[in-house]
Computed example of a mutant assay.
Amino acid sequence: MNSIIGIVLTVFCVFGGYMMAGGKLEIILHSLPYEMMIIGGAAIGAFLCANDMHTVKSTLSDVISAFKGPKWKRQDYSDLLCLMHELVRLAEQSPVELEAHIEDPENSALFQKYPRILSSKDFVELICDTMRSMLMNFDNVYQVEELLDKQLETMKEERLHGSHALSNIADALPALGIVAAVLGVIKTMASIDKPPEVLGEMIGGALVGTFLGVFLAYSFVGPLANRIKQIRDQEAYFYSLMREVLVSSLHKNETTLCIEVGRRSAPHGFRPSFSEVEDALKALKQAA
Rank of each mutant, 00 (worst) to 15 (best):
M84W: 02
S219C: 14
N2K: 14
G204H: 02
A42L: 14
G177A: 12
H85Q: 09
E26A: 09
S58G: 04
M242S: 10
E157K: 07
N168W: 03
L160V: 03
G69Q: 10
A42E: 12
G16R: 07
L246W: 00
P33G: 00
H251T: 11
V88Y: 09
T256N: 06
R74M: 15
V141E: 14
H30E: 13
L173Q: 07
F274D: 15
P223I: 11
F111H: 10
G213K: 06
G45C: 03
A180G: 05
T255I: 07
E260S: 08
S65I: 02
V214D: 09
S61H: 13
T130R: 05
L29Y: 09
A287D: 06
G204S: 06
R263L: 00
M136S: 14
L29D: 15
I203S: 12
K285E: 15
Y18V: 12
Y114P: 08
N140G: 02
T188Q: 03
L32M: 06
P272S: 09
V182Q: 05
M53S: 15
A175P: 04
V214S: 14
D52Q: 00
V11Q: 03
G204F: 08
V182K: 01
E201Y: 04
D62Q: 01
M189H: 07
R271F: 06
V14T: 15
V96P: 01
D79C: 08
S78D: 08
K156L: 14
M136F: 13
V144Y: 07
E146F: 04
Y34Q: 12
G23C: 08
P195L: 01
K57N: 11
A66V: 03
H54C: 01
C82A: 03
G213I: 03
E157F: 12
K57W: 10
G40V: 09
N51K: 03
L83N: 13
R116D: 01
K24Y: 11
N253S: 09
S31R: 08
I117L: 13
G269R: 09
R232G: 03
N140P: 01
W72S: 01
L160E: 14
G69N: 12
N168C: 02
M242Y: 04
R263D: 01
S3F: 05
S31H: 12
L166R: 11
A283R: 06
R89W: 08
D79R: 11
S240W: 07
I169L: 06
A266Y: 00
G40H: 13
H161D: 06
A100Y: 13
K282S: 13
I127P: 00
E35F: 01
P95S: 02
E97W: 04
E146M: 09
G17I: 11
E244D: 06
